[in-house]
Write a protein that binds this DNA or RNA. Structure first.
Lengths: 201, 201
DNA sequence: TGTCATCTGTCATGGACTGACATAATCTAC
DNA sequence: GTAGATTATGTCAGTCCATGACAGATGACA
């Protein structure tokens, strides 16, 4: 990897970190692009060369996490039923975060706090999840061998499950991977109880 | 109702109609507040006295529809299970629209087209639905007698159901209440098939 | 009709975002 | 390592969304 490429990556991470810290300290709305750019010592114009919008920088960690989830999903064995594969991929994505660089973990958890504290950003995360849903749907449809209403419902139910699981996190659990994991498991268990056998086949 | 109040209502509706027409013709992003205000012959500043943001005017019909839904929900008999009450309330809300003023129906359908065509607005609608979900959750929790994970899941499943049902609408069905109704019924039927008995009790 | 409350327009401002262009840094080939 | 091509960055100007302040217009009401 050349110097130029390394520098770009470094600037990108620095912008994310600076932005998240400022968002947490002064709030998302009260933080300006100028402040973020100044903290990293780049021009405001450069900020927009790295991120398309103020929202994008706040959601960058979430976006990365979704990519991890998708690659975990595609690595699940064919034998697993769609919803099982989704749940396992989620566990895998959480594990990647848990066992990864502490800085990455910190960044992710900071981002989650910002998302929870800012309605605008929360809506943006929903938009992300919905965009992702299209790609998840492809995998579900492939495993079920049918791109129909039922595949859509399985996919939407997964999204809901994750959402409900994460919604229940207390403030402390927002900065704690294990607490997050427990909430998710509780919700997966509930789904198992409320659905008929082979509902996702 | 006094003259002043009538004038305000008229201006509000005129702004919504002008905005929706401009959004449909030139796209949401390419339409400016100035254009909307000019079309209704008010100052741009006045626009913001009626709507907090450009997004809000696009979502006004959706917001009104959600209010109708909520009042239908509270009118459902106590004997109905939570999800049944939700489904019936949805049918009721659609009926109100179907049997209402043709102008209101047109406005609603135009707004739906704008929402579908504009990712930003679509995300905004999600934000609306999530805000509403809190109020729906209260009713579900009341009927179940428990404000727990299961109540949250029932509520989230309802939201998913509506979303999946409406997502499947083709462009023509977007401007057709009956087509919309059929899609919704298909989805409700599917939920019935995939859930265990009394899953929402 | 006169007074009051409220609505509206005008003006000024700040912040998000974008295009254009010049400068500076890196990369590549020699 | 130097020249020239590539690419990143800074500066500047401009658009649009959004908001506060104030003055003038308009409906409400005694």
């Amino acid at each position: 990897m050349g110097l130029r490429e390394r520098k770009k990556l470094k600037t990108r991470v620095a912008l994310i970190d600076a932005a998240l810290d400022l968002f947490l300290e002064h709030g998302y709305e009260s933080t300006t692009i100028d402040q973020i750019a100044a903290a990293v010592d780049v021009s405001p114009r450069t900020f927009f060369r790295y991120f398309g919008s103020k929202e994008e920088v706040a959601l960058a960690p979430a976006t990365d996490a979704q990519d991890v989830f998708l690659s975990e999903l595609h690595a699940r064995p064919e034998a697993e039923s769609p919803f099982t594969a989704l749940a396992q991929a989620m566990r895998g994505a959480v594990a990647v975060l848990r066992d990864g660089e502490p800085e990455d973990k910190q960044r992710f958890l900071k981002a989650r706090q910002v998302v929870e504290a800012t309605p605008t950003i929360f809506a943006g995360q929903m938009r992300l999840m919905l965009a992702n849903e299209q790609r998840i749907l492809e995998e579900v449809a492939r495993r079920r061998g049918a791109d129909d209403l039922r595949s859509q419902f399985v996919t939407a139910t997964f999204t809901s499950t994750i959402r409900v699981g994460l919604e229940n996190c207390t403030v402390e659990e927002l900065s704690d991977i294990d607490g997050m994991t427990r909430r998710l498991e509780d919700t997966f268990t509930l789904v198992d109880q409320l659905m008929v056998a082979n509902w996702d086949r």
